[in-house]
Amino acid sequence: MTRTALQVLDSAGLEQLTLRLLGKELGVQAATIYWHFKNKQELLDEMATLVLAEGAPNLLPARASSEWTAWAAAFGQGLRKTLLGLRDGARMVSGTRLTNTLYMKTVEQIAAQLIASGFTTRQAVVLLSTIYSYTLSFVMEEQAVFPRPGERSPQYDIAERNRSLAAEELPLLRQAGGILFDKFDRRYKEGLDLILRGAAMQFH
């Protein structure tokens, strides 16, 4: 049922996903769906739990490393990859409560590596939660621009945006369009690097 809900999300989007639509997709009465989930939020909790649990291997470094930066960077990059794997993935996960600990076990492993590298528990939690919040909000914006990979929303046409901004009044914001609404891979890595360098200076 949860996997079918993820398929509906991927095809219809978060706003259109309802318990009734899920029931229709499954060929069952709405009452059957409501027996499993009291409301849409409970359904989203299960969906987010499944997505994060199955994406947990993405959060670990590809190669064994003792460098805390490798673990912290892999956490952010892997989370972004997981969220981008599904339409409205970041918005769907935002604000949910996980219903099992599979994803948490991987985060525990990452946090333990940070602590082994000299971080206190609080420092490790602050760093990972900062990366999590940055990644979640970043992907929300990214998926607004590209609802599907390679398909730019017409609302984020850079040339059209530039035509609406007076060059004399807003020269910097005109230049910013290509940075904010294109080449997301590069900007994500640059932002993540700022976080890691800040952590190295403050915590380590």
Score class of each variant (00 low, 15 high):
Glu168Ser: 15
Leu60Asn: 02
Lys40Pro: 06
Tyr132Asp: 03
Trp71Lys: 03
Thr106Pro: 07
Pro171His: 12
Ala56Lys: 07
Leu98Tyr: 12
Ala48Ile: 05
Glu141His: 05
Leu128Glu: 00
Thr4Phe: 15
Ile110Leu: 02
Lys38Tyr: 11
Ala53Leu: 08
Met140Trp: 03
Thr4Lys: 09
Met47Gly: 04
Leu194Asn: 12
Trp71Gln: 05
Ala199Asn: 08
Phe203Cys: 06
Arg91Asp: 10
Met47Ser: 09
Asp182Leu: 06
Ala111Phe: 07
Ala53Ile: 06
Trp35Tyr: 15
Ala64Pro: 01
Ala48Gln: 05
Glu142Cys: 02
Ala73Cys: 05
Glu67Trp: 10
Glu46Val: 10
Leu173Ala: 15
Arg20Trp: 09
Phe138Val: 04
Ile33Leu: 15
Gln202Asp: 10
Lys24Gly: 03
Ala62Gly: 09
Leu19Arg: 00
Val125Pro: 00
Arg187Asn: 00
Leu172Ile: 15
Phe75Lys: 04
Glu169Asn: 15
Leu128Met: 08
Asn162Arg: 15
Val125Met: 08
Glu151Ile: 09
Thr101Trp: 10
Thr82Pro: 09
Ser65Gln: 08
Asn39Thr: 14
Trp35Pro: 01
Leu43Ser: 05
Ala199Pro: 11
Ala64Glu: 08
Gly95Ile: 09
Gln143Met: 07
Leu60Lys: 05
Gly55Asp: 10
Ile115Trp: 04
Gly118Ala: 12
Phe184Ile: 04
Met1Cys: 14
Phe75Pro: 02
Ile179Met: 13
Pro57Leu: 06
Glu108Phe: 12
Ala56Tyr: 07
Asp157Asn: 12
Asp45Thr: 08
Leu17Trp: 00
Gln113Arg: 13
Leu86Tyr: 10
Met1Tyr: 14
Lys105Gln: 14
Tyr156Val: 01
Phe75Gln: 05
Ile131Asn: 02
Val145Asn: 00
Leu180Lys: 07
Arg87Gln: 09
Ala62Thr: 01
Arg174Lys: 13
Gln7Cys: 14
Tyr156Lys: 04
Gln143Lys: 08
Tyr188Val: 01
Gly85Pro: 05
Glu142Pro: 00
Gly178Ser: 12
Arg148Ser: 05
Met104Thr: 13
Leu180Asn: 10
Asp193Lys: 12
Gly78Asp: 01
Met201Glu: 11
Leu26Val: 14
Ile158Lys: 01
Gly76Tyr: 00
Tyr34Leu: 14
Arg148Leu: 03
Thr121Ser: 11
Asp88Gly: 10
Leu44Asp: 02
Gln109Val: 08
Arg197Tyr: 13
Gly178Thr: 08
Val107Asn: 02
Glu151Lys: 03
Thr18Trp: 14
Phe37Gln: 02
Trp71Ala: 02
Phe181Gln: 05
Ala159Asn: 11
Val139Leu: 04
Thr69Trp: 00
Thr120Lys: 06
Thr18Gln: 06
Met140Asp: 05
Gln7Arg: 14
Thr106Cys: 10
Thr101Cys: 11
Gly55His: 04
Ala166Gln: 14
Ser117Arg: 12
Trp71Phe: 10
Phe181Trp: 11
Asp157Phe: 01
Thr130Val: 06
Tyr188Pro: 11
Thr82Glu: 04
Met1Ile: 13
